[in-house]
Design a binder for these strands. Structure first.
Lengths: 140, 140
DNA sequence: AGTCCAATTGAAATTAAATCTCAATTTCAG
DNA sequence: CTGAAATTGAGATTTAATTTCAATTGGACT
């Protein structure tokens, strides 16, 4: 469970599980899988378990470090995160018009990337592919 | 020549070629292919053909729209751009250890992405693929 | 349960990137 | 040349994220 995983991660780093970190953790995993930090902060302010903006940002970094959360996109102004626990890796299409995010996964694409890394003697450890354009509803 | 291309682009949009836009254009194409807007602005301040920060940002948007420049995603704070005139589209591998950037291009990869867009009824207009890991020199 | 101390917190200030405002200036079509 | 429309720049503003630091808290160890 994400709770336990984060706990262990903190333990390994000599950090403490505080009520604020717990609040952020809970909110992240009850939020839609994609979210931005300010949305998250607003939700937390409105919830029972509060945390300050500073703590939200600080905890978010820890969650990324722990692997429970990933930073997804940098195409707009701020960052977008996604909680990834128990979910398979995937990439994203983002509609420039309405902002919709479509997730996709392609085995072929993954293999092709492995090949490309191989022929460059590069040890790929993670990647982000973001395709921008117009979604089904927004194309004329 | 990028000069003429930008001129035409502006013409098509009913915009004017000003000395400031020219200054930005020139500096973009004499800069290293990857740059960030503040670097660019600093270079322009130091050059003969000046332009304000506002004009630098405004012109940069136009250059992206014209296709002469692309926004390259990055993990830090601000954006990174790259001038692409006369250069084929490519993606990037970034070494987490030494920061080296390796450019690569794969026809198969491009086609595969077209397929994926097609099957999602998505009109892909641009994409960014960033593979992070260890380069040849930094592995092991 | 109590002590201790490093880790943590929050409010507010700060940094940083990018955009906006608007009076003055410039471009360029006619 | 002229004039309307586009553009500019200085500085204010917005937005995202980080930093500061005195006060508080978690939890290891008795």
């Amino acid at each position: 469970m994400h709770n336990k995983i984060f706990q262990n991660f903190l333990g390994r780093k000599g950090l403490k599980m505080t009520r604020e970190r717990f609040a952020v953790l809970e909110e992240v995993f009850s939020a839609p899988s994609h979210f931005d930090p300010e949305q998250l902060y607003a939700r937390i302010r409105a919830s029972a378990l509060k945390a300050s903006r500073a703590s939200v940002y600080r905890t978010l970094s820890l969650l990324v470090e722990s692997g429970l959360v990933e930073k997804v996109s940098r195409s707009g102004r701020g960052n977008i995160y996604e909680h990834t626990y128990g979910r398979r890796h995937h990439d994203h299409m983002i509609c420039d018009v309405c902002g919709e995010i479509i997730e996709f996964y392609s085995e072929n694409l993954e293999n092709l990337q492995l090949d490309i890394c191989g022929s460059n003697n590069f040890e790929g450890m993670s990647h982000t592919l973001e395709i921008r354009g117009h979604c089904e509803n927004c194309r004329d």
